[in-house]
Design a protein around this nucleic acid. Structure first.
Lengths: 361, 361
DNA sequence: TGAGGCATCCAAAGCGGTTTGGAAATGATT
DNA sequence: AATCATTTCCAAACCGCTTTGGATGCCTCA
């Protein structure tokens, strides 16, 4: 149901039915139609029914822009995705997180607006999004250990939510995170309990807050067990498969090689596994691996006995929850900082086993 | 620069500077300020300068909703991401494609609005997005062999763009695709030239148009070489690592096993490689693999000699191009269907070599 | 000197909704 | 029968911007 409406400078635009038109055909005022559709009490039931049916028939939808101009609420949430020009990685967990968040937004009648910007322009993107009134709140991705975005967004006085946390900030803010530290402490402890003493950590970039916390958990477990920390067993980089592969090959060449590896992502674990296999070592018998598993749908790690022992937490579910927290914040800004720390579950798979004595190199 | 403005029903909202306020402090009319900022000629250079500086100082940004209400253009593009409830896969190429498209939108001053909906509600999502005037155009993801969305969007009279194509449609529409058929024909031909006669195809779901075209290319090459098609060597499924692994293990058990495999994605190729390695076979010597490589940043396949021989095409670049085609369509709807067929490049890596005679099972 | 042309600016009318502040009709109450 | 409360509806203002259609003042030129 479209009509052709000439607009001001002579352009011809295709427009959907408007409230006014709908009111016109019904012989009612726009006021009444608006109230009928929005469930206000001061309208006759019969009238309301008539209006609803007409709206249905005409496939009427209120114009979002007009509506939010009038109400002052954008009914939209902003996500700013910085793409760094230095390391061109598009974080694969974004997709699942966004899918989860998007489900929540859709159900709640919110739009999701995405801005993909060079990371140098990120702050500007937030400012712009907010100054233009394009969104009611923003979600923050990929927090660093030290992240200036808490201060920035606090200043902009907009509801915001971090997926993950940042360190060295006293100012309270809202976040949803997994318990990275506890998760990796526990995983390391699990390996220690199996008799491993040489445990490698193949981590993500340590400027990322999650990586830092995982390392802390790892270090805690070692310390608790009285195992000396060996920097040669700790790596951090962009989490790719070849990175995992190289880490394994190179570390296994050490005089006193690790018997167990902890990986920060499934992709890295794939690389480790390939390295093992190239060295003729058997996963879970000769060498153990525990990986973090974000439960990405295209990297399944399930079955009766999952391939990898893993600290598992669905990033998609995190997206759902973070989104609904943010919506709560938007609808009641007073409700101050909201935080949630999700625990991961340690899923025991086929990739771990007791430490075997190594012939010394 | 914020002011506290009381709004109608007593809520207190934080608002940015408005045109009217800016005009007020400058002692000018909103008209003049608007024109000064939008570069209209009928304003004194000195005045324009004064206005620009004041706007800068006040961090003024025109309210998007008001602006687009007035102009009738949303300055936004919609992406609908269907998440099927049956197979819960969030396609990993979405992320890179969207990153690419997003870059283009940002530069052009367009917003990207994402709707994540259960696939049953997809049509409704398009209708809704358009009826509400929330977007000026839409991008269509993951086309099937038979896709009703061409008809739907044509009916809705909105500029739209397919990432990929659909088959069995006579109606013209705009799309950007890679030459899947030629790509896989060429890859298969490459393997045939190396002496392979038993070539497996480990494909994506065949309801997806890309998978269908790849199969056609594969079949063409076989036929051209007079090689009989063996259904036992053709698989289609959601593209995960375990799927690749199982395909390899099971097919290698066949009486007359394939000496080469073609994979529809890097992830599947990872699975194939693992299978090989478990069977003690050497990649590129005992068995060859060619995979399609979307050039995802976290699945790198480069270096002097890439790990995999691959048909390579950056899906991120596809996103950039598709987006700019869509914007062209939005800005000049008359410019009818725009199409682009990107060729992939066949990158020769370490995963292919001459066929070796197999001991018959 | 007066008409015409320019350069600058502005008031007001939209865009498509929501919300305020009545008004008219109906029913209940005294 | 007059008063008052309810119910049901509507006119008009407003959200923040753009655009139309002047208005004003100054300069130029016949």
């Amino acid at each position: 149901m479209h009509i052709i409406a000439p607009i001001q400078h002579g352009l011809i635009l295709l427009m959907s039915v408007t409230l006014k038109q709908l009111a016109g055909t019904l012989g009612l005022s726009p006021t009444t139609v608006s109230r009928a559709l929005n469930g206000f009490p001061e309208v006759n039931d019969a009238t309301r029914k008539r209006v609803r049916e007409a709206a249905e028939r005409a496939n009427y939808r209120p114009n979002t822009r007009a509506k939010s101009l009038a109400t002052g609420r954008a009914q939209a949430i902003g996500h700013v995705i910085p793409v760094s020009t230095s390391h061109e990685i598009v974080n694969p967990v974004f997709a699942d997180f966004i899918a989860g968040a998007g489900e929540t937004y859709s159900r709640a009648g919110y739009e999701m607006v995405l801005r993909v910007v060079p990371d140098a322009d990120e702050a500007q993107a937030y400012r712009d999004l907010i100054a233009r009134g394009a969104v009611d709140g923003v979600m923050v991705h990929g927090p660093r250990q030290q992240d200036s975005r808490v201060a920035l967004l606090g200043e902009l006085e907009v509801p915001f939510m971090f997926h993950g946390r940042t360190s060295n900030i006293d100012q309270p803010y809202s976040w949803l995170d997994i318990n990275n530290q506890r998760s990796f402490r526990r995983a390391a402890q699990f390996l220690i309990d199996l008799g491993h003493r040489r445990i490698a950590l193949v981590n993500g970039l340590e400027e990322m807050d999650f990586a830092n916390r995982r390392r802390n958990g790892y270090l805690e477990a070692l310390e608790h067990a009285g195992i000396a920390v060996d920097p040669a067993l700790m790596r951090q980089a962009e989490m790719t498969e070849p990175y995992g592969y190289r880490a394994l090959i190179e570390m296994r060449k050490l005089p006193d090689p690790p018997t167990a590896f902890m990986a920060s992502s499934m992709i890295v674990a794939y690389g480790l596994r390939r390295g093992l296999s190239d060295l003729g070592l058997k996963l879970g018998r000769d060498v153990s691996i525990i990986t973090h598993d974000d439960d990405l749908s295209y990297l399944p790690n399930d079955g009766d006995v999952p391939m990898f022992t893993a600290t598992k937490s669905s990033v998609r579910e995190a997206g759902r929850r973070a989104a609904s927290m943010l919506l709560r914040l938007v609808e009641a800004p007073a409700s101050a900082p909201l935080t949630e720390l999700m625990e991961t579950s340690l899923v025991v798979g086929a990739s771990t086993g007791p430490a075997v004595p190594q012939e010394s190199g």
